[in-house]
Amino acid sequence: MEQSELTAPFYLYAIARDSADLPKLLEHSPVEGAGQPFLLSANGLVAVLSDNSKDRYPISRKNLMAHKNVVEQMIRLTPSLPVRFNTIAPSLELVRARLLTEKADELKNKIKSVEGRIELSIRATWLDEAKLLERILEEDSSIRALRDSLQNGAGHQERIRLGQMVENAILKRRDALGAKLEAYLKPLVEDLARGTLPEGVVANLSLLIPESQLEQVEEAIYTFDAENDLTVVRITGPLAPFTFSEMTIRWSDDEDES
């Protein structure tokens, strides 16, 4: 494809290490309405871009998935860094000069740091809350005693107190299980990021692991799962290491260059 035939602006998916066997175009569908993703190379690096981009894309499953699919195809081809969703470059010259040239060393080091690594997302959820409650009553005699005393009719205050005791017991159990899961995983991972813990979620982790450790990590999770009948564990991935390597890029001088 001749670059002169391309239409600005350009949607940027990823930056990656160049190599002789990379295709010129990627197979995955581009973000909506844009051109087929192509590679722009300079200084041993490539930028993955689509021409004819919109100025921005609304946050939707469809658009996020298009972005993700292109990034993940690229990561299977060569060590790559995902770029943040909705990064639009006004010109190829800007990508070549400001990123692939000015930031070449920084980018190459960053690529080296995620080479051969994958991301897994692990989420443990309470499977059955009725069963959880039953277990807590079984194991905590003071909660059981209070519950039994309430069955003969009790005041509002006692009911609130029982609720709080149960809630605390659930949180305590959640934290203990989360710590146990992390202890299993820690020796196997290179990096670990904790996500938000809404009600019902026991653990929510993003892991950066060497590809060669994938099986051991899965083993550890199966072990945790086998030991805990109150939770269900969901493994998502392998993913591109979005959590650990995604780049945010701003073009400070859009107007001059476009």
Binding site: R98, L99, K110, A193, L239, F242, R250
Partner: peptide, 18 residues
């Protein structure tokens, strides 16, 4: 699972051109 690209979209920022 969207929390790959979306989580990162809201997650730590490691490298910034500016």
């Amino acid at each position: 699972e969207l929390l790959g690209p979306l989580g990162a979209f809201l997650g730590p920022i490691l490298f910034i051109a500016e």
